Amino acid sequence: MAVKDRDRFSTATRLRVLGEQTAARVYRSQTRRQARRSRLTGRAALLTLVLCSLIVALAFPMRQYVSQRADIADQLREQEEARARVEQLRDDKARWRDDAYAEQRIRERLHYVMPGEIGYTVVDPRADEEHRADRGSADRAWYTTLWGALDRADGAPAPSP
């Protein structure tokens, strides 16, 4: 028995037994981790699938909601602009009911003068020649412009067939 005891307590034997025990523990923990990992992977895949489905299902309604909110904001802005324009038109209408305002505007726009007044038209002396050239026919009578256009049309060569 001494040999067996010696063999049992030898360093090589102890290391071999320790290595086998360690290998068994590592193997058991790896299989547990793999089992856990496979369960977590399945759960994670299911959770991912559910989340992706929710995102896809909610994407279109959310886009519609945001689009409709933008449309509503545009409509409200246009409504406020229309209200402001209506107020401005009401103010203008009330002003035009005042005879003094109407008379002032008519005299400005149409260059009317009251009996006994003298009307003046002031021409800017700094007006350049290009501006006058742009006006062209405005300096002539309308019938002169008409006859000039007819003369030019009459003198134009006929289009060839």
Rank of each mutant, 00 (worst) to 15 (best):
L54W: 05
L58G: 02
Y120K: 14
P125N: 04
R43W: 06
T145M: 07
R85E: 11
V66R: 15
R69N: 11
D154W: 15
T22V: 06
R105V: 10
A82S: 01
A138D: 10
E87G: 10
R69D: 08
V66C: 07
L54M: 14
D7T: 14
V86C: 00
A70R: 14
K93R: 03
A12N: 06
S160V: 12
P161N: 07
L89H: 03
A149R: 15
E87Y: 07
A24H: 03
D5I: 15
R90I: 04
A82D: 01
Q68I: 03
G19M: 02
R97H: 06
E108Q: 12
A127E: 08
A94L: 04
R33F: 09
L58D: 04
R83C: 02
W142M: 11
S53K: 05
Q34P: 00
S53H: 02
Y101A: 13
T31K: 14
R140D: 12
A23Y: 06
F60M: 10
W147S: 11
L54E: 14
R28C: 01
G116W: 02
Y27Q: 13
R135N: 09
A82T: 01
R135H: 08
E129I: 11
L110R: 07
S10P: 00
A45W: 02
A35S: 15
W147K: 09
D99S: 13
R85C: 02
D92M: 05
P125C: 03
A24N: 02
A138I: 08
L51D: 10
E130G: 05
A156Q: 12
R83D: 10
R135K: 08
D134P: 00
A158W: 11
A82R: 02
A2H: 13
I106L: 12
P61K: 00
L110E: 12
R85F: 06
D91L: 13
I55P: 00
M1Y: 04
V123H: 08
Q75F: 05
R90M: 08
E20P: 01
S137N: 08
P61H: 05
V3C: 09
A82F: 00
V113G: 07
I72M: 05
